[in-house]
Computed example of a mutant assay.
Amino acid sequence: MSYLETTAQFYSEVAQTPDVGLCCVQSTPLRLPDLVVPEAMQAMNYGCGTTVHPAELAGEPKVLYVGVGGGLEALQFAYFSRRPGGVIAVDPVAEMREAAQRNLAIAAEANSWFAEDFVTLLAGDAFALPVPDASVDVVAQNCLFNIFEPEDLSRALAETFRVLKPGGRLIMSDPIATRPIPAHLQQDERLRAMCLSGALTYEQYVQRIVRAGFGQVEIRARRPYRLLDRQTYQLDEPLLLESLDSVAFKVPIAPDGPCIFTGKTAIYSGSESCFDDGAGHVLAKGVPAAVCDKTAAKLGAIASEEIWVTPSTWHYDGGGCC
């Protein structure tokens, strides 16, 4: 049995018998006016963070959600689109689609603004999304892509790039590893299905996104997710997994490389009222300005005594240099 077959079997089981602690989600579901999340849907909240960032969802976007789970985030996305077919949710596991459909029916009774046809459930997988090229504004996935082996991850990222409109956004939440995961854990198919052994390091993860063609990546949150202990997982030392929420934009990669925002700022402290690097970045004296990692490195190099570059905060919500 392949790891994908093991994963399908595993999620068929947890669709029929919800496992509340499966992904160890610690964050409170997004609170929005008049949004009621059914208990059955919350019990199937199989994710490691969130992909629903209101600032990304202006203008009633067309959303494609990959791996529907219990339907929680599909419902949250529908809150912003509010029209028939505004959200398409794709899942290869029939039992999961059936459970999500039941949960969405309950949600329609509990939320006066919501109708079941706001979410279209389709059979399909991340490697062959059942929508045309350049047809959606947002693709989202929560704690799914980390299950894939690296080359399959690249296939899934390429497929999301295909279906996004120019300027569209890939919103993801996945575990990442603070160091490479040992081979004996990577080869454990059930641990991979449980989101515990397929995670890449941060550097590897972002590199795959850029290789798929995304020219800008923004880190929305990075926080502890799980600790793999020595005894249970046969490790020399404990291994921390983190949850990474990110947004990748389908924009061209600049000649000098992609823009990766990790929450860095640049602060000018020289004698003039402002600093202009001649490349579109103007820093007012004493005022922090959000910059991508690439720009931060360049500014630090050209005026190291006059410009302070602060470390990554691993949180960024727009308004930067690019």
Rank of each mutant, 00 (worst) to 15 (best):
A221T: 05
L129V: 08
G213F: 11
E237S: 14
Q101D: 13
G270P: 07
L196S: 06
N142A: 15
T120M: 09
A221K: 14
L122H: 05
R82F: 05
T178H: 12
I176K: 05
Y11R: 06
I176A: 06
R155V: 14
E73F: 01
I176V: 15
R155Y: 04
L157Y: 15
R190M: 13
A156T: 03
P38G: 11
H53S: 02
I307F: 04
C23H: 15
T50C: 11
E242M: 13
F249I: 09
R169D: 00
L157N: 12
D317L: 12
L30F: 11
A254C: 01
A199D: 12
F80G: 02
G21S: 14
T310F: 06
R102Y: 05
S246P: 00
S112E: 14
M41H: 02
S27I: 10
S271V: 11
P132S: 04
R155S: 11
P61V: 06
L22W: 07
R230T: 14
L157Q: 13
N45M: 08
A303Y: 02
D34P: 03
V287N: 00
Y233Q: 03
T51D: 02
V14D: 06
A248I: 07
P311R: 10
E73C: 02
F214S: 06
V66C: 08
E13S: 12
S12M: 00
G257Q: 09
S312C: 07
L191C: 10
S12H: 01
V210T: 12
C292K: 08
A58Q: 13
E203L: 08
F10G: 10
P252G: 06
S271M: 12
G213S: 07
L244N: 04
S154C: 08
L64K: 02
E95K: 09
I147V: 15
T6S: 11
A296R: 10
P238Y: 03
A212H: 04
Y268P: 07
L241G: 08
D152M: 10
Y11V: 06
A301V: 01
F118W: 13
Y202R: 12
V210P: 06
P224E: 07
